[in-house]
């Protein structure tokens, strides 16, 4: 893979997802592209690159973007965040809403571990009802998320054994999320660079470990979009190491830290606004 190949790829991926493709990750890119070439019945990575330089179709561009995005995740990733959601954020949001209905968006949910973790958590919270929407750019990830099928390795990362017994059924060589949990999540393919308005409003948005891979301009765009989708007393959760540098006036850090943010002033975690 030459630097000029990497440039072509970076341009495709950047334009379609805002993701920055680090030039020093050519080896990783090549490995991932080999899988795409195979799936597209192309003889190899060189042929794929040739096709990308010629007149690539939508489907091929999607497949390449999809393959080059990092979708690594685990159940209950960064446990202290889930503890905070369970103990403080969700009860406060539910308490301020009729029927305890909290609208949640798991933005960039990858293979579904995050929304499923939330659904498991909420099942044990009396008075909290989640209206759970999960989106990702990757068709491949969403397909796996919807199926709710995870390998033995995946279910042993982050998931307590009691939760595995309770929420999964064993298939021949994998573990499948029980139907009641699969039905608790609405899945949607969505590009965070697109207009978010049609998605509606949310009380809780999780967009973790996404911004860190985006170009600054894309980060700013996404943060503005998310601010517009958040209820006045809503909470945005970023990855533990992510900040709102590109939109400093749009959010303020919520008490408890851990990548939790609220809209500035008017309302916050401690004083949820009631009514509309």
């Amino acid at each position: 893979m030459t630097p000029s190949d990497m440039e072509v790829l970076a341009q495709i991926v950047g334009a379609r997802s805002g993701l920055v493709l680090p030039p020093d990750q050519a080896y990783l890119a090549e490995t991932r592209l080999a899988a795409v070439a195979h799936a597209e019945h192309l003889p190899g990575v060189d042929a794929l690159l040739q096709a990308l330089r010629a007149q690539p179709g939508e489907a091929l561009l999607n497949a390449v973007t999809d393959a080059l995005a990092n979708s690594e995740t685990v159940f209950l990733r960064d446990r202290p965040v889930f503890d905070l959601l369970r103990d403080a954020v969700l009860p406060a949001l539910a308490g301020a809403r009729p029927g305890g209905a909290v609208r949640v968006w798991s933005a960039a949910c990858a293979t579904g571990q995050e929304p499923y973790s939330l659904a498991m958590l909420a099942a044990d919270l009396p008075g909290v009802r989640l209206d759970l929407c999960a989106s990702d750019l990757s068709e491949r990830c969403l397909h796996k998320a919807k199926a709710g099928l995870y390998t033995q390795f995946e279910v042993q990362r982050g998931l307590p054994i009691a939760q595995l017994l309770r929420w999964f059924e064993k298939t021949e060589d994998a573990w499948r999320i029980r139907p009641e949990l699969r039905q608790a999540v609405r899945w949607r393919r969505f590009n965070l660079l697109h207009d978010m308005a049609p998605l509606g409003r949310f009380d809780l948005i999780l967009c973790r470990n996404v911004l860190m891979y985006l170009a600054p301009e894309a980060r700013r765009h996404v943060l503005h979009g998310l601010a517009g989708r958040l209820a006045p007393d809503g909470v945005l959760v970023l990855g533990a190491s992510e900040a709102v540098c590109e939109a400093p006036d749009m959010f303020e850090a919520a008490p408890g830290g851990r990548g939790l943010f609220t809209l500035p002033r008017k309302a916050g975690l401690t004083a949820p606004r009631t009514g509309t």
Binding site: Q152, F153, Q156, R157, G158, P160, I161
Partner: peptide
């Protein structure tokens, strides 16, 4: 807790 073989360091640590 319960580990299903095969395991690796990450699984032992997590469990």
């Amino acid at each position: 807790e319960y580990i299903m073989k095969p395991f690796d360091g990450d699984i032992i640590e997590a469990k």
